[in-house]
Structure formats: C-alpha cells, structure tokens
Design a protein around this nucleic acid. Structure first.
Length: 884
RNA sequence: GGGCGUGUAGCUCAGCGGGAGAGCACUCGCCUUACAAGCGAGCGGUCGCAGGUUCGAACCCUGCCACGCCCA
C-alpha cells in the first residue's frame, strides 16, 4: 500500500465513470456539498503540535459586505492551507466574524431604526418595527446588543455561503464571532491579566476625542486630512507694558485656553522674552513665555500660543513644561459654559460669555470679531490648507479633551518594551519581507500607550466596578476587578463580589464601568479566541502559537501590531511564525477598488459568471504584498485551463482505462508512482524524460509553496501542463494506442496515469473543483486529502533520464509544425523527410525518441546529422494528394 | 516632508550581472476522432529618464521623473 493518493479520513462515493462530455457546470454546488457532508476539511485534533498547521484567519466585518478584495486575499490563504494539508499537516483553519464595534452599531441603528439609551430599562418583549420609523426608538443597552447579535447572525450566513462556493477549505465547525461569549471572556480575561501585571491602567489625561461619536479615539485610528484653515495674527501685550508680542494661530477660539507662549530655545528673536510674561488679549490672563525644542522658528512668527488643548504638540508642551490646564472644549465639541478659573476679570468673563456654548466653528467666528474690535487682531486672516486629525470613521476634526480612560502598555511610553516589540517584528517571517518595515515604522512612531476604552455600547465591557464613596463619587483608585471564573460579564447588570443589587449607583455602594473596549482590544486576541485559550486548553496546546497570520497591509499598525502586543504580554511569544500580507485589488485605472468609486463587482456574481476555479486562478496571480489589477481576462484564462484539464484528463484516462489499456493493475491505473507495477511498466525514453521534467516541476512548485510564493507554484505547473498536452500527449498518442507494440503502449499508459495524478494534485490547491471532479472519475477519496506529489518517486521512474530531452524533442516538433503552418497545410500532412542537424549530444537525446517523433509529425524519413550550433531542421513535405 | 513599493511588448505580468520572455490581444493558417471555449505559426519592446561601476547592466550604485501605499 502506498501513500500516494491514499484516501483521507473522509470517505467518498465510489469512483464514477468518465463522462463522455465533461463539463464544469455545477461543480461548485456538487463538490462543496460533498466536502461539507464528508467533513473533508475537518481539523483532526488528535495529532500533535508538530504536525499541525494553524491559521489565524482574519474575521471579516459582517456589517459590511464582502467585495472582490476579500475573495482575492482569502483565496491566497486557502492556497496555503490546501498545500499544507496535502503535505500531511493537519490544518487548523477557523473562520471568524467581526461583529464587534461601531460599524455594527451603526448598521443596527439604521436597519431597525433604534438607538441605544443606557438609561432605558431592558424590555424582554421588545421587537423592532418591520420598517424603521422616522424617529429612532430608544432602547436599553441589552436590547440593543441583542439586536446586534440577531442581525450579525444573519449576515454571517451569507458570508459562509460565499466562502463555501469559493471553495475555502475552512473547518466550519471552528467559527467564532468577536462579540460572542468566548470572545468576550477572552478579552476580559486578557484585560484582567494585563491589569494584574500593571500593563493595563486607568488614567486621566488629554485624549483625542470624536465629538460626533462622543468617544475617545486611539492613535491607530487617526488619519490626517487636508482642510482649509487660516492664520490669525494676534498681539499679546507684554506684562511689563513695553509693547506687544505677535503670534500666529489657526485656532483663535482657543485663546481662553492659552497657558503660555512658546519659542525655540535657540531663537534669538525671543530669547529676551523667556521667563517674562504677557497677557492674553480679551481675557487678560497673564501667561509665561517659555522655550521648547518643538517650537518651529520657521512657522509663522516663530512663536506660538500653547492651549489646552489644540493639538498633540500642546499636550507634549503641557506635560513637559508642567503647565496648568484650562480646558474650554467639552465632549460635545462646544465651548464649556463656564470660563477657566484663570479668567478672573470682569471683561475677560464677559468676553468668554460671548463664546460659551458655541460650537468650535461658531466660537471662532465670534472671537475673530471680538479680536478685531479690540484691535488685537493684526491684519486679516490668511487662508491656508493644513493637515487636520480626524477619526478615520468620523467627519469632524478631533478635539482633545481631558478624560479618564483605560490604557494598555504598548511601548509608546517605554523604550524597553518598544525595543522588545520591535524585536518581535524582526522575529516574524514576513511575506513579502519588506512589509516588516511598516511594522517598525509604526512601532518607532508610537507616542503614547494604547487607549482601549471607548464610550460606546456594543462592545466588550470592562469587567470592572468602582466603589462609590459617601458622596456617590466613584473611587477610581480602588477598582473592583471581576474574578476570572465569572467571565464574561457585564458590570452594568452583573454584581461585583460582596455587593447586592440594591447598592448599585447609591452612595457607599458601587457602579459599573460604563465603557466598552476598543474593537482591536478584542481582535488582537483572535489567536487566543480561535484556539480555545480559555475553554479548550487541549486545543490551545496543539495550535498555539499559530503558523500563519494572513492579512492586508493597511492594518499592520492595528491588527498585526496589537496581536503581537497581546501575545508578547500574555505568553511571551510571537503569536505566529509567518505573516502573509496581501495586496490591493486595483481597478483598470490602477486605483484601489472601492465602493465610493462605484466600481465594485459583487463576489457572488463573479463566481457565478466565471466559475470559482477561474476566479481563484486570477487571485492566485497576485503575489503576497503585490497589488493586482482586477482582470476578467485572467479569469477567462483560468476557466479555459479548468476546461483543458477536464478534456486532457478524459483523453488520458480514455487511453489508460480503454480497451487493451492499463486496467493492468491498480498501481498503474491510478497513476501510483510508488508502485512496483508502474516502475516495471515505464520503459520508454520519452516517458522517462517526461517524468524527469515533472519531477523538476514538483520540486519547483514545492519550493515555491514553502516560500509562500503560490503564484510561482501555479506558473510552473501550468506551463508544464500545456507542454504535457501539446507536445508529450501528441508525441505519445500513436504509441499509447498500441502503434509500437505492447510494451511501448503500457509504458505510455503508465506515464499518462502518473503524470495526470501528479498534475491534478499540483493543481488541487488552485482549482479545487475541477481537480476534485477529475479525481473522482478514477480515484478513491478526495484529492484534497491526497498526498502532495514527491519528486523522488518520479525520479525513480525516470531512471536518470535527462529532462532536457523533452525540450529538444519539442524544438524539432516545432520546426516540423512551422513548415506545415507556413505551407498552410494540416498538421497531419505527411512529411517526406526531415533532416535534423545538431550537436552530437543533442542527437544523442533525439535518437531514442525518433519513433515517437516520426509518429507525431507523420514523418516518413527522419535523418539525424552531426553538425554544430543551433538545431536546424530541413523539412520536405510530401506532395499533396491530387485535388479531387 | 519621511519611509516602502512599482515603472519591461497594446494589456496583465515574469526575469533581477552574460541569449529580452510568457499569457492575453492582434495577424496568418489548420475541421488534427480529448478539447474550435481547440491546435499550429507569426507580428510586436533604445526593459521610466540621466549618469556611474563592470570586459559586459533590464538586472548593481547615484540622481531625477511618474504612479501607488504607509506615516508626518
């Protein structure tokens, strides 16, 4: 019994007859159903870690829809999964769904016409209206979360259907959702452990704040957008009374929040001012002039006002120079009702009253008027365009407000940790390697710890309560942490140990932490979630740390980095050995495909139109990290290849299994390269040469796959396949039918069977449907559980035949065809004589296969003549038969 | 402004120190009983530009240009 083509654990129906007219119609439905019923891709957890190949599949966002980019990159992962499975690894290939966070919240709001109001009590009987009404219905957090869960469940069904049709070899019994019980428990347990180690902490600090969503935002969620602004020139009178200091600012509305002026320490213009004070216009607050290296002498007048807080540089100045805080902007993006205490003059308070309650925009307009009237505004504002920080999902500029938030240490404030995380990046095998640089750039650019709390509703709550003092104020310095065995929990409904429900939100009692975690704080734990860190330690042992993280490059700074942070902290390990980074799909204008450009094709439509194998073929042409054009032409080529495989297989198997053909023995008939019968049967030089070439192909494809270069593996396989069809099959046809005696026929038949078996397995990761279809005609079990071909076995059959032989024969065959093509006659036209002149070593390769060559070219007289240089072929066609 | 990547035939891409390649498209042929959704043959490129290294450069180095992405 050989391992070659051995059936996998799953059994299949008996092999079917070879269809007379093979077709791709219906292969997707047929085989995806069989794979589901037979559990072809089930993960067998009985094997040890060393035989497992585990994949940290990216959980797609269910609230969005799948697009071509998903089909593209998920196919890449499946190619690797299928290859590793055939190499004998037990593949742990789960699927997750990302239903945690703001996108789901928004979708639920719009879909059902509701909004979350935590003050509303839970209504167990709530059902949303059939059609969303004009006014959003306020519902409790629990009701809201229930709707989120309900809707995402439906979304997930559509995703699974598409993935199955695409042929992803996912084990569908290993699924998770980032908001399910297990994920919540994992996120909460990891948080508790981070806290216990001192790596999660609560801090009141200036925080980037989105005024629309009213939530804190992390550094990783920022983006710069160019926005129009204007420089305003303001005069600050010196406290000493001798003149003004002129500054420029784009945010005059923050003048009441001004705590100092700042210039570069080397700036000679302002050195006399350092240590002196000035007064703010309108408000009359005395502020110092200070020096700091981050002040840019080239910008504006070289001296700037520091406000709490206009931007992140203000935060740095405020912190490093120990300046007071004078907040004026509230969480709603409006100026606070009351002025900072430092504004203590009648006039100052009156000026502030003009601004209180206004939006930032309105306040700016008003204060410019006031400044102009007072004469403090010099000249007119000068329009500029400048980068402004936005929350990536928001559409109003971020403000900075001081709030209490949870942070997780990520090296942003700790050089030692930063260096350790940088080293983790270097330890990871990146595909392609240059993607590592993005990771390093990000780590190097971190300017603070990771803010993980969000003031939202649908997410994983912090498993934390705070005692309330006699005044009902939370004791943030003494949080009550949940016990690990009580997870997952919701502090807004669950009770802290030792308290009763009556003590909730009353003085001397407790209150639950109202925030939820950043979705990345859960997504960064996908290896732990998928691998059963909490509830399945046996599984965890076998699959963690994982082998592969496949993902897109734009989330290296978020998903990849944060996953490394969590694993480093919790396990002191890299979460996976390899990261495969996929590129973008570009539309024909070489722009990234996106909805807004209206050029997105629906994935299901694509699969239906071209066939799954064809779409996968196109996807396989995109190397890791390389952006790839959306190219229907490539899909058509893929479809043609699949059809060619059907036809070539039908033909080869017709010969092998036909009358007088190799129903000889099982080993020969199934193309078992390791069987003794096959070894004895393969005797002809051309057949051996074919197998020698095929062995080279197997080596090349294997090496390419091992290096995650599936594109190369497909290329070498495909290229060989066409040579196999066009040259080898043509050369061997006559002999295979018995034209050169029994032994020659058997040799050809055995070779055809071995070659076909090998090629089908090489193609199986790319074209799983057609490969399985053909495999089922003559083999037991699934091709996807068959063993990857071994070059050594083929070489043994080849008996050291020179693989170049095939190439040389091809050159002569091509010359004969050229002669016929130029003469515009049929390829079966008779050739009276062909005289081949070549170097002796080339002739030595041609001589043993001259019979096959004569047969394929219909050559009556083939002469091999010693010569020098390139192969030259003189062809003399036989006279055409007289016209009828 | 900094970093990374990409510029090779009309299109999509491979090649990355010694012959400029593949597929598609195009042209001309072939009903050759596996496949006309096929087969055969052919046309087509100062390898982004300019320097340099080398006996020799698409390939290595420098600068520039264009495009894309990431970060400021």
């Amino acid at each position: 019994m050989s391992t070659d083509g051995a059936p996998g654990p799953a059994t299949q129906p008996a092999t079917r007859a070879i269809p007379a007219k093979p077709s791709l119609d219906g292969v997707e439905e047929r085989w995806s159903a069989v794979w589901r019923d037979q559990q072809t891709y089930r993960f067998d957890r009985a094997v040890g870690r060393e035989r497992v190949y585990s994949i940290d599949t990216p959980p797609p966002t269910v609230s969005g829809s799948l697009h071509v980019g998903h089909v593209f990159s998920y196919t890449h992962t499946d190619l690797i999964a299928r290859y590793q499975r055939m190499r004998g690894r037990e593949v742990f290939y789960p699927m997750g769904f990302d239903d945690n966070g703001l996108p789901t919240e928004r979708r639920v709001q719009n879909y059902y016409g509701v909004r979350c109001d935590p003050s509303v009590p839970y209504d167990p009987g709530f059902t949303p209206p059939a059609k969303p009404g004009k006014e959003q219905i306020p519902i409790s957090r629990r009701n809201f979360v229930e709707l989120c869960e309900q809707l995402t469940l439906e979304d997930e069904k559509g995703f699974e259907e598409l993935w199955r049709r695409l042929g992803l070899s996912v084990d569908w019994s290993c699924t998770y959702a980032t908001i399910d019980r297990r994920s919540r428990a994992v996120a909460q347990r990891a948080f508790l452990r981070n806290f216990a180690r001192g790596n999660a902490y609560l801090a009141e600090a200036p925080t980037l704040w989105d005024v629309t969503f009213r939530t804190a935002v992390a550094q990783a969620e920022l983006e710069d957008r160019n926005r129009p602004g204007a420089y305003h020139t303001l005069a600050f009178p010196k406290a000493s009374g001798d003149g003004d200091v002129i500054i420029e600012t784009t945010r005059p509305e923050l003048l009441p929040a001004c705590v100092a002026l700042v210039a570069h320490p080397d700036d000679e213009r302002y050195q006399p001012l350092f240590g002196k004070t000035v007064r703010t216009p309108l408000f009359g607050v005395e502020v110092p002039v200070v020096a700091h290296r981050l002040a840019d002498p080239e910008k504006g007048s070289g001296i700037a006002m520091i406000c709490t807080f206009g931007d992140l540089t203000d935060v740095i100045w405020w912190r490093e120079l120990n300046l007071p805080a004078r907040a004026v902007i509230g969480r709603d993006g409006r100026l606070l009702p009351d002025p900072p205490a430092a504004i203590d003059t009648e006039a100052g308070r009156a000026a502030y009253a003009e601004l209180a309650g206004k939006t930032v925009h309105a306040a700016k307009t008003r204060i410019v008027e006031l400044l102009r009237e007072s004469g403090a505004l010099k000249g007119e504002p000068r329009s500029i365009e400048h980068p402004v920080k936005f929350y990536e999902k928001g559409d109003r500029p971020l403000e900075i407000v001081s709030t209490r938030q949870w942070y997780l240490r990520n090296g942003g404030r700790d050089e030692q940790l930063r260096a350790a995380l940088r080293a983790r990046g270097a330890q990871l095998n990146w595909h392609p390697p240059h993607m590592r640089v993005r990771y390093e750039n990000w780590v190097d650019g971190l300017n603070g710890d990771w803010l993980i709390s969000r003031q939202r509703f649908f997410g994983v709550p912090f498993p934390v309560w705070y005692p309330l003092d006699a005044d009902g104020e939370p004791r943030y310095d003494a949080p009550i942490l949940a016990a690990e065995d009580s997870l997952p929990l919701d502090p807004s409904t669950d009770l802290p140990p030792g308290y009763t429900a009556e003590q909730r939100d009353v003085p001397g009692g407790f209150t639950g932490d109202p925030d939820v975690m950043d979705t990345w704080a859960t997504s960064s734990l996908t290896p732990q979630i998928a691998a059963g860190w909490i509830d399945d330690p046996d599984l965890f042992e076998r699959v963690f740390p994982m082998d592969l993280r496949p993902q897109a490059h734009e989330i290296i700074r978020t998903w990849l980095f944060s996953t490394v942070v969590r694993s480093h902290d919790e396990h002191d390990l890299l979460p996976w050995s390899d990261a495969a980074i996929s590129g973008w799909i570009l539309d024909p204008d070489r722009k990234k495909m996106s909805k807004s450009k209206g050029n997105v094709v629906t994935p299901m439509g694509l699969l239906e139109e071209h066939g799954s194998d064809a779409v996968r073929y196109w996807a396989a042409s995109g190397r890791p990290g390389t952006d790839t054009a959306f190219d229907v032409g490539q899909m058509k080529i893929g479809r043609r290849l699949a059809i060619k495989i059907l036809n070539a297989s039908r033909f080869a198997l017709g010969i092998v299994g036909g009358e007088g053909g190799a129903a000889l023995s099982t080993g020969i008939a199934t193309g078992d390269a390791a069987s003794e019968a096959t070894l004895a049967a393969v005797t002809e030089p051309l057949d051996r040469a074919l197998l020698a070439s095929l062995a080279d192909v197997v080596d090349a494809a294997t090496a390419a796959f091992d290096g995650y270069d599936y594109t190369r593996a497909l290329e070498v396989t495909e290229s060989f396949f066409w040579t196999f069809c066009d040259d080898y099959v043509e050369l061997v046809k006559g002999r295979a039918y018995g034209g050169a005696g029994e032994a020659g026929a058997v040799s050809a038949q055995a070779t055809l069977a071995v070659a076909l078996s090998t090629l089908l397995r090489l193609f199986a990761p790319f074209l799983p449907f057609v490969a399985e279809e053909v495999w089922s005609w003559w083999q037991a079990g699934s091709v996807h559980r068959a063993r990857w071909p071994e070059a050594a076995q083929l070489r043994k059959l080849a008996e050291a035949a020179p693989s170049r032989q095939l190439e040389v024969v091809g050159v002569v065959l091509s010359a004969v065809r050229r002669a016929k093509s130029e003469a515009k006659v049929s390829m079966k036209a008779e050739v009276a004589s062909a005289r081949v002149t070549a170097e002796p070593d080339v002739l030595a390769l041609l001589a043993p296969v001259s019979a096959d060559l004569r047969s394929a070219g219909s050559i009556t007289d083939l002469a091999l003549l010693d010569g020098t240089g390139e192969i030259a072929v003189a062809v003399e066609l036989a006279p055409r038969p007289a016209a009828v």
